[in-house]
């Protein structure tokens, strides 16, 4: 990786990058409040989510967004991702997170951001988070390999930081977990074959995400 791409990757991976991600726990808050998940299971939970959800769903969705050469292709892919989603609340939250990401991207002048934002506004593009993210990462000149690594690491960090803010784990422990799972992240982040469809299986969180009213501090 060249220096410039490395710096861009760090910036995109910055936990303070303003795109609203801090307010989503993607089911974790509900599972914790239901007692479905205990403190000590956080690491295995994160690992399972990396496999079942990030690898199966986010990775192909993001790769498709990155690979889309035209707005039309992106819109078609985005619609495919939309129909593959399990529940309406998940769909809704993914769209809202995509919209927040586009707000930041437009202000930052990222290539393609304005066109995507306008297309969402005009109903030409649904705007799911991973598809938008893939297209934007391409817009800032990240390779697909790097884009997927940034996404996988961000997904893991998002779960761990939600657990931290829910008082379930200390900051040092979150980093210890992240370090232990780093080889898994690298292994899972390999680009999918062209045209791979999202196929996830993470029933615990899928059900939790359908019960968003149980979540209070986080959007989901």
């Amino acid at each position: 990786m060249k220096g410039a791409e490395f710096i861009t990757a760090l910036q995109m991976a910055d936990s303070a990058f303003p795109a609203g991600v801090f307010a989503y726990s993607w089911g974790l808050e509900t599972l914790l409040s239901d007692g479905q998940l205990g403190r000590r299971e956080l690491e295995t939970f994160a690992e399972a989510e990396l496999h079942g959800r990030w690898h199966g769903v986010e990775r192909p969705s993001l790769a498709g967004g990155w690979r889309a050469d035209t707005l039309r292709a992106l819109s078609d892919w985005d619609a495919t991702v939309d129909v593959s989603m399990w529940s309406e609340s998940q769909r809704q939250h993914s769209k809202e997170a995509g919209a927040a990401t586009l707000i930041a991207a437009v202000r930052l002048g990222i290539t393609g951001a304005r066109e995507m934002r306008d297309a969402v506004r005009d109903g030409q593009l649904i705007g799911h988070l991973p598809c938008i993210t893939g297209a934007l990462y391409r817009g800032v000149d990240l390779s697909l390999e790097t884009a997927l690594l940034v996404s996988a690491q961000g997904f893991l960090r998002g779960l761990l930081s939600a657990a931290l803010r829910l008082g379930q784990v200390g900051a040092l422990e979150t980093h210890a977990i992240a370090a232990r799972l780093a080889p898994t992240v690298v292994q899972l982040a390999a680009p999918p074959a062209l045209g791979s469809l999202p196929t996830g299986f993470s029933p615990m969180t899928d059900i939790a995400l359908m019960r968003p009213t149980a979540a209070r501090l986080f959007i989901n």
Binding site: G20, F22, Y24, R165, L217
Partner: peptide, 15 residues
């Protein structure tokens, strides 16, 4: 929802 961070949602990341 503010993800347990009232200041983040109005300052660090108001998106």
């Amino acid at each position: 929802q503010a993800g347990a961070c009232p200041h983040t949602v109005i300052r660090e990341d108001p998106t």
